[in-house]
Design a protein around this nucleic acid. Sequence first.
RNA 1: GCGCCCAUCGUCUAUCGGUUAGGACACAAGGUUUUCAUCCUUGUAAGCGGGGUUCGAUUCCCCGUGGGCGCGCCA
Length: 439
Amino acid sequence: MMSVRVRFAPSPTGNVHIGNIRAAIFNWLFARHEGGKFLLRIEDTDRERSTDEAINTLLDCMEWLGLDYDEEPIYQSRLTERHLAVAEELLAKGAAYHDNKGGDKPCVVFRMPTEGRVEYHDLVKGKMGKKAEDTTDFVIVRSDGTPVFHLANVVDDIDMGITHIIRGDDHVENTFRHIELFKALGATPPQYAHLPMIVNNQGKPYSKRDGAAFVGEFKEQGFLAQALFNYLTLLGWAPGDDREVMSRDEMVAVFTLDRCKSSAARFDMKKLTWMNGEYIRNTPRDEYAAIFSERLREAGLLSDDFPQQTLEGIIDQMQVRTRLYNEIPGNCSYFFTDNYQFDEKAVNKRLRGEGVAELLLEIAKRFEALPVFDLESTNATLVELGERRGTGLGAMVHPVRVAVSGMAEGPGLFELLVLLGRETVCRRLTRVAGEIGAI
RNA sequence: GCGCCCAUCGUCUAUCGGUUAGGACACAAGGUUUUCAUCCUUGUAAGCGGGGUUCGAUUCCCCGUGGGCGCGCCA
């Protein structure tokens, strides 16, 4: 049994599209499951776009996602002579011919069969085929003497000993051509598996206009590599049981191509975000703490003299509530500065009511008078006041939360108050009481 | 236009002829007159249409419909 060799063959343009990286992930999973090799071939024949920077971006993305490859990357641009030699071979065999429909110099065109059928068995789509008369000849060497994708792709796959080609749906038509190319070159065509496209809300291929479309953008927005990897794996594939959040080892253990779907999958940012939150909650606390602090320092909110114990308490409260690392500064700036933003809806709902200013001042006064300012005492204060006024605890809690944090969400109120400290809480309550109309 | 492919809750999916069609996201309600960006419970919600094959079709076949992809010098 020949051992599996698959490849990821991106053209380095500076951005790696999620559709492409999903194909890379599936290749990687397949190789690891089969105990085969996962190879990287950089199709850098477009010298204009294939800069060193673009190649480094590509390599960074793969490293970030943990897509380790098994042999030195192949750079297609260095193989041009080989491609052209093969074109000559095809010409000599009569499998290709010169043509100059373009007008200027002739190009080399590969001859497709004219009778019979071109068929292959797709590992995810099943039996595929079309009549030879429905196929058309195609250019393999441009009139400027450079090899075209089809030729280079097939020649390299032969030379690299590729056994399985796992790629996007949009290559199905090319497959009929490529198979004939393999045959004309006396090579056995590899096995093919075509993955469904990742589409947007309109069912069109997912592009930059639909939001983050490149791996780098997800990284920048604070998505975890593991979460993106896991989410993408579930687009067009399922383990067969009810598992969704899975470790890499689990996925490798059960990944097979026959469990891939053949219909397009819609990209759902909400589910990815949820999954990212799952991964963040499962991140070791130390690791989360480091990232948390880093993000706040970047935002200019955390200084070195911030009390460590308080910071630890904030981290405990925030880790379970973080879905995206980028949300961190915006979601808890109030812990670090008096200059926090007020959410307009929350203000309107909780602070605009009659008597709220007076209430906040009353609460501040009672907090000042407490012997100790902790969870129990602050809680008791508001419960008692709520009873005394006959309005209940809710009428106390919400205005206080919005006043001291500016938002309607966050840690439990009493945890929040204790972390902020009596001084800060009272200062804010007093200030907000005086400025309600101006907020 | 021609060719190829696809079709289960709003979304991602399970089901490989017999299920009360399951799970997850999202949404809604409750726990909670202390919030949700956490947690628990519950709920709403699906087989594109028409023919066959079969004792029985979401599942197999055909025809429609809808969508995607491709159609000689992008990759």
